[in-house]
Write a protein that binds this DNA or RNA. Sequence first.
DNA 1: TCAGATTGATAGTAGAGTGT
DNA 2: ACACTCTACTATCAATCTGA
Length: 357
Amino acid sequence: MSLAAYNTTHMDCAKCKVKRRVYITDEDPATLTKYKTCDACRRKNKVYKKNQKLKMLHKLNTMDQLQRESIMGPTIQVEQNLGLVKSVETRPSFTSFLEKVSHNKHRDVISIKYNCEVPEFIIHRYDSSMIISNRPDYASVDSVEQKVTNYREEVKKKLKLHYLSRLFDILESLGYTFKTRSTNWKNNKFYAQMLCHEDVGNKRKDFSLLVDDTDVPENSQERDERESHANDNSKYDVAQPRNILLYPCQSRLNYSFDSTSGLLSLEYSHLDHDGLPPTNPQDPKSIAHPPNSAINIASQWVKQLQSKPNGEQTDNASRMKLLMNPEQDGSEASARKNGSALANALNYLHRNISSKE
DNA sequence: TCAGATTGATAGTAGAGTGT
DNA sequence: ACACTCTACTATCAATCTGA
């Protein structure tokens, strides 16, 4: 489209109704077709939205502060700094983060966080233009890739050396070992996830839990077949029990590093093993998955569906009713079993909530 | 068995559009 | 000016795969 064509447009701004013209009401010709409002109106709206957001955040911050004060009394001034985000300098030190982790010896630790800007003398910032522009003419794409790979290796090494090793040392003294679950680079950011070595969530999900042990097939041929498969591990790839106890400790150690800004953030959660029921390492089915885990919920559903006596027909409505209210299935033993499981789960939940208050 | 990579899902956020 | 919805994008997390 020519400039003249743009200037003869009859499109009005949906907000201020001014006739829109390229380079007059709209700097970029593309915005004429992309948006229904002119640059000025969009700018104005953007400023307004930003102010609204700040107001809202300030309001929430004030409400949160009042709420906390009503419960715990006035807190120290640093916490209620008007700036919504604490500056890096006023944030808690890494040592105080480690100190909070150290409490995990006798307490559950839920979602404690640490953020900091890693000094440039520890990890230099990633700058793709530097890598490419400094590339000698003879350099191949491979060598650029190699530089990126080297940089990433360096990041991991330095994070480990300056931060993670200190954290692992504390965890080791508590008797906990965290292993890497996954790592991932995305848009110059490094994400990593670690889990407690003894966390049941760490282990392969055993979907045989969905079928109760007691559900041995009546049919002897079917039963023999199942037993023969039970010994055929290579075929069914069943997780072998190892000689360690497992706990539903809901562990979580996530950290990320922004290689352009140098920002490091860590988040740690882990339930104290002493307060958790250990599982029998010889029996994979004894693994106590957390009550709200998908596998437990699914398992409960399957059990409920299977709990009806053989041959008894149930329509969809009554089956759904049964799922919504499992205690009414008429089977006393089943009700007692499920009831106690539910009660245990609720007690466990309340114990955790009250321990955090 | 493990670390690391890949890929997909999802929650959160910013910005545009529109009506009052 | 304000409130609301919708959409696109981003950050983060989780599942799965692969190679050592």
